[in-house]
Design a protein around this nucleic acid. Structure first.
Length: 576
RNA sequence: CGGGGUGUAGCGCAGCCUGGCUAGCGCGCUACCUUGGGGUGGUAGAGGUCGCGUGUUCGAAUCACGUCACUCCGACCA
């Protein structure tokens, strides 16, 4: 039963929480195992999960935190349809761009629809022709609803589902300054939300992917099992997703292989290691060629990306540089077809394909690179005379690289994305013809921002961030109940009566408690308690005869013995 | 999308290679007894279109082909 302040009380004998000893065999992550074993969620199909009663309570609690903070900023909650006419997606141009993750279908009249993976198009449709003056701006609308993305490979339980719940907000502004202001408000708001949830997180610079726009920041919960690599500075506050990370230009103390420009025979030396060994040069002074097949809406094209020999290509950066929809590995045949000599590719004199060069190679000297001729390399290469547009940030920042802000060493860690905020600019408003009249009476496309939080994912993140080998360790903010009253032996009337009494008293105080009144053995109930992981337990057992009960803290599993008449006030203090 | 694997009771699995008794085991479930501070012990039970389809065969969970679902590694992923 849900009592008025939003907390819950329940008797375990009535609770639908099918706990199990065994986890599904595909559950590899703690959050997946414990949420299934603890009876919070159940899988219904690939990437599709049901929320059982306790999972639903946790979900609602997280949702409440998000909603409260959003409302605080003046954003207004709405609800958009999950089913969206495909025409809107064609208008924005994303119908072709979004790829197979966008689930498309037709109704009985053969009209095309999509299941919304995000709602920029719909929200623009909501405001266009209705907001028509700068006087009506800014405006921020948000929703907390179902999204569907047909993931290529759903996995990790709630962390990578096909159907999931997200809080997505969209703001409209008359100019960039106002948009940026809201962006900052959202950064602060998200910080409040994740702090309230008790998570260890960082706001990091990010790539904006298929959503588009210029500035974007991701909120990453630091967790070993994260899917994203984050670059973090050891000394200053700089942190970024590796897809967008910047660094101070790489340097080396190793002496340069000074030489005048010339061509050398390098038989069968196809790797950086081979070539550098041959010339006795550090890989820093070589140029690595990475060949990719870029996929565009209407064509495919082989493109070469050049980075330093001791760097790696960052694929997302490469993708952004060439503006393709996707990059795939190029096959040996494809290289041959366009005239590339695998193992001997270099930027000098390269004319048969489009290519990009990492920014850090600009104006570099004394380099070694392929001569675009089998078994030959150039030495003494100087990077001049390439067109400006050839240069782009392409290299992947690695652990040990120096921070671009303060120069200190940076390290790489794993994170789980729980929020992402974007400055969209006029991208969608322009594409969809959504304008307002500015102060000068001129029609302008809206400036937009968009802000997402993975609400259902957070249910799993809470556990990923807080568990032990026995099960979940919920904090008070998100626990399904705050306390489990464990009756050691329900056949002992004194124990049952005492437990019932304290349960009723706490219920009156509107504290969220669970009473384990099941006719099960003590060990069985304790295992369930530890698995479910409520913040506290009250054990009503054999010491009751002597006038004592025990309070257990889940986090430490420490037990403290208290007099039975002191338990109520002690618990009231702990749970409030 | 590329490469593997699996599908037999609610869950976890054996049986399949080498076709043939009534398809088993553990956990869970039901009833009774037992026990009552760490998933107690016992007795008796219930529960299965062997994913689906076609084929081979006297006979298919077992072999072949097809199909669907789930899943693992990788790629991908607001």
């Amino acid at each position: 039963m849900r009592i008025p302040n939003g907390s819950e009380v329940m008797k375990f004998s009535k609770l639908y929480a099918p706990t199990t000893k065994d986890a599904p065999k595909d559950a590899t992550l703690p959050s997946h195992q414990f949420l299934v074993r603890g009876g919070f969620i159940s899988q219904v199909g690939s990437g599709l999960y049901n929320f059982l009663p306790m999972g639903k309570i946790v979900f609602d609690k997280i949702k409440d935190v998000v909603k409260q903070e959003m409302d605080e900023t003046g954003a207004q909650e709405i609800q958009m349809d999950v089913v969206t006419p495909a025409d809107l997606w064609k208008e924005s141009g994303r119908y072709d761009v979004f790829g197979k993750e966008l689930c498309r279908f037709k109704d009985r009249k053969e009209n095309e629809f999509v299941l919304g993976p995000t709602h920029e198009e719909v929200v623009v449709d909501i405001v266009r022709n209705r907001i028509n003056s700068y006087k009506q701006l800014p405006l921020h609308l948000y929703q907390i609803t179902t999204k569907f993305r047909d993931e290529a490979r759903p996995r990790f339980g709630l962390l990578r589902c096909r159907e999931f719940t997200m809080k997505d907000g969209y703001s409209f502004h008359e100019d960039e300054v106002c948009m940026k202001k809201e962006f900052d408000v959202m950064e602060k708001t998200y910080t409040k939300i994740f702090t309230k949830l008790g998570l260890d997180f960082r706001a990091v610079d990010a790539d904006s992917g298929a959503i588009g726009g210029s500035g974007s920041k991701e909120f990453m919960v630091l967790a070993q099992n994260g899917e994203d690599d984050i670059v973090v500075c050891q000394s200053c506050s700089y942190a970024a997703n590796v897809e967008a990370a910047k660094r101070a230009p790489k340097t080396t103390s190793v002496e340069a292989p000074v030489a005048s420009f010339s061509k050398f025979k390098t038989p069968d030396m196809k790797t950086i290691a081979d070539v550098c060994h041959f010339f006795k040069a550090d890989a820093f002074y070589s140029i690595k060629a990475v060949v990719k097949k870029a996929i565009y809406v209407d064509k495919e094209e082989v493109i070469v990306f050049f980075v330093r020999g001791n760097d790696e290509l960052q694929e997302v950066k490469a993708l952004n540089a060439c503006g393709a929809l996707d990059l795939a590995d190029a096959s040996a045949e494809e290289l041959e077809k366009v005239g590339l000599k695998a193992g001997f590719i270099g930027p000098v004199g390269l004319e048969c394909v489009k290519f990009y060069i990492d920014l850090e190679l600009k104006e570099a000297k004394n380099l070694i690179c392929g001569a675009n001729e089998v078994d030959y390399h150039y030495v003494g290469v100087e990077m001049f005379n390439f067109k400006e547009e050839r240069y782009a940030d392409l290299a992947s920042v690695q652990a040990g690289d120096c921070c671009g802000c303060c120069g200190a060493s940076m390290y790489v860690t794993k994170g789980i994305e729980v929020g992402h905020i974007f400055q969209l600019g006029q991208k969608y408003a322009k594409a969809m013809g959504a304008t307002f009249l500015d102060k000068n009476g001129k029609a302008q496309p809206f400036y937009m921002g968009c802000y997402g939080i993975g609400v259902s994912r957070l249910v799993a993140v809470m556990i990923e961030a807080s568990h032990d080998e026995k099960g979940c360790v919920w904090n008070k903010q998100t626990a399904p109940y705050l306390l489990d009253i464990i009756v050691s032996n329900v056949k002992d009337e004194a124990q049952s009566a005492y437990a019932e009494e304290i349960y009723t008293a706490l219920k009156k105080e509107r504290l969220s408690v669970l009473l384990d009144d099941r006719n099960e053995r003590f060990g069985f109930k304790m295992k369930d308690y530890e698995l479910i992981g409520l913040p506290y337990a009250l054990i009503v057992g054999k010491e009751l005869e002597e006038g004592f009960v025990e309070i257990v803290e889940r986090k430490t599993l420490e037990k403290s013995i208290v007099k039975k008449e002191d338990a109520f006030s002690k618990l009231k203090e702990l749970l409030s």
